[in-house]
Design a protein around this nucleic acid. Structure first.
Lengths: 213, 213
DNA sequence: GGCCATAAGCTAACGCCCGTAAGTCTAAGA
DNA sequence: TCTTAGACTTACGGGCGTTAGCTTATGGCC
């Protein structure tokens, strides 16, 4: 893979007061490196700088260190994920069952569309380095919460509509459903060829949502 | 963390014909590095050599490169996993329900006991490097098969005993069950604090095995 | 229109660790 | 005693994160 940046024009410096734009460009560069198929080790401080067309030390004006870049990427992608799920929910109409499948399949689609991004969102190698940096535990714990809420909502709707067996703990059921989706999404993101039937996603959803059908 | 090896005696050279023993020592050193809590990036060719008390180039007599060491670790741990699951099954008595929970909980326990090992077994960063090395695709695809068989067996026993709703595709159901367990195990291996209730494992098992209870 | 303070970003360099190649030593055992 | 398996030493080149200090374009102001 050729990493060569064919920037004839090296890069236009941002205007005064717009220096913050570089922050977004850095994040975009990191995401681009992930999407190019390399794993997260390809996202070094220097490689990000090269991709963004800037000098490596220029990153320090916007990020304390490399793990901080990763955190920013993860936060952005988590927001995108939650937004995608909400959108899928809203476009699915009123039928709870269709809403459930729409949201769950949207989750799986997000993971499939950008495996490397998904990988670092849930269990990237940057998390251990948190000890050494200024990333707080609170930053991490709040990360998946929003997406989980969407899942809990549609699950609740299914129970309320009587198409799923409810339990005493809806949130716990939502977590279980999410873990199932995550297991599938992660394995797909990591492995060339998945074992098992093609409809394993639907099986997981039906079983973990306790659908009565 | 002090990585210092307090080897006063540097290391006794293996006897003639026993040079292969070093291979196992290298694997053990790699596993030890993982268990020390660092992530897999701590397992470099040089760090493994230090841990094993040998010079770095001495590894080349036994492994083509660093990913090959990782593959050997993964293969060993996969074998251990399958053996553990089989043992749990055999010690669980005849009741299919108890066998199911014994095997599934054994799986989760293995992951919890050695999170970093689990992490590289399913989705470690060494897999992409496979392109560059002599590791074949067949090596990778056969990896989890044995453990999955145990799972399919106990699931089949549950269906046969009438305590679980069977489907047309037992293998597919086993994969789905495994994916659920994997989602939980992986997330636990990766994150400091899991969301959700403590019995989320049991919920997953009951739902994905389609237990009638 | 020209000045100049400063935001925005650069160059150079340090030290570290890595993978790996080339050649060398040394003790086991026939 | 001598062969050779089982290691070791040395060294090269490269990427990394990070620090220190420098350059340059921008845009308000006279």
């Amino acid at each position: 893979m050729v990493t060569a940046v064919t920037n004839t024009e090296p890069r236009r410096r941002n205007r005064r007061g717009e220096g913050g734009k570089l922050r977004e460009e850095i994040i975009a560069a990191a995401v681009a490196l992930l999407d190019e198929g390399g794993d997260e080790r390809a996202v070094t401080l220097r490689s990000v700088a090269r991709k963004a067309g800037i000098a490596a030390p220029s990153i320090y004006a916007h990020f304390a260190d490399q793990p901080s870049i990763m955190l920013a990427v993860v936060q952005q992608e988590m927001d995108r994920l939650a937004a995608t799920l909400r959108e899928a929910d809203e476009n699915a109409g009123a039928d709870p069952r269709q809403r459930l499948f729409a949201v769950c399949n949207a989750y799986l689609d997000v993971a499939r569309a950008h495996p490397q991004r998904y990988r670092i969102m849930f269990g990237g190698l940057w998390t251990p380095s948190v000890d050494d940096t200024s990333i707080s535990d609170a930053d991490l714990e709040s990360l998946g919460a929003e997406a989980l809420t969407v899942l809990a909502d549609v699950l609740g709707a299914c129970v309320e509509a009587g198409i799923a067996h409810g339990s005493d703990d809806l949130y716990g059921d939502a977590v279980a459903l999410w873990l199932g989706l995550h297991g599938l999404a992660h394995q797909r993101a990591v492995v060339r060829k998945m074992p098992g039937p093609a409809d394993v996603g639907d099986r997981l959803i039906r079983a973990l949502a306790h659908l009565k059908s």
